[in-house]
């Protein structure tokens, strides 16, 4: 474990916590008989969260952590896997099933057909992988899928007029975690013999590059202290 990877995992954890906080905020609004103005805004405007991206991430974790009960690596590793699995599936459940949270989900805007991402990633994983075994192919599939899983969310953000800052922070943290992982791979490449994983590295690089324009608008909105807005 190195500082880049720990920072990456913590950033990833933060992104999940921000999303859970946002869902909790929406839920708690409903409890009030006369919703406060913030609640009114939250409940009326779309949450800006893409259910498609959340479903893709649940699939990423489900196919990535198949070995959670067979290969024990460390307590930290197992706990983090359980957190990511549990949170991604519960977020999907909330947006799909929870009577209040799903009202804040704008399915008319979140129209990205994520099937078009799943199939090519699966085909690519069947062709390019480190070992043609069931677990290895699904693990490789999860890497390819994670690289593109943010696309529905980024497209939804372009369509959402006012991006509330929790959603903006969520996407920023999600992009930052993989950027930190790239530093971790560089560090491990130079410090550990025969640590070479091209598939992981290229997928991680593509994933981070997809956030490039978001990062640009995110930092310029911070610098100019204006509302985050992505060009359509």
């Amino acid at each position: 474990m190195n500082i880049f990877r720990l920072a990456g995992d913590m950033t990833h954890l933060m992104s999940v916590l921000v999303l859970l906080l946002k869902i909790h905020t929406i839920k708690s609004c409903a409890g009030k008989s006369y919703p406060c103005s913030l609640c009114f805004i939250l409940l009326e405007s779309s949450s800006g969260i893409s259910l498609k991206t959340q479903e893709l991430y649940a699939l990423v974790f489900a196919t990535r952590y198949l070995d959670i009960f067979t290969d024990f690596i460390s307590v930290y590793n197992t706990i983090m896997k359980l957190i990511f699995l549990g949170s991604s599936f519960s977020i999907v459940w909330y947006i799909r099933r929870h009577k209040i949270v799903r009202r804040s989900y704008d399915k008319d805007q979140d129209t990205f057909r994520h099937f078009f991402l799943v199939l090519p990633c699966l085909l690519l994983a069947l062709i390019i992988n480190e070992k043609f075994t069931f677990k290895e192919v699904l693990w490789t599939f999860s890497l390819y899928l994670e690289a593109v899983a943010i696309l529905p969310q980024l497209i939804l953000l372009q369509r959402t007029r006012n991006i509330d800052n929790l959603t903006g922070q969520y996407v920023f943290l999600l992009g930052a975690y993989r950027a930190l992982y790239i530093l971790n791979w560089i560090y491990r490449y130079f410090t550990e013999p025969h640590y070479v994983h091209w598939i992981t590295w290229i997928s991680g690089l593509v994933q981070t590059l997809l956030y490039a324009d978001f990062f640009y608008y995110y930092f310029s909105s911070l610098k100019n202290n204006v509302k985050l807005k992505l060009p359509a």
């Binding site: 990877r5 290969d71 690596i73 590793n77 480190e130």
Partner: peptide
């Protein structure tokens, strides 16, 4: 050992 090494990340 090599395989074990590869999958120690989240």
């Amino acid at each position: 050992e090599e395989c074990f090494h590869a999958k120690d990340e989240l």
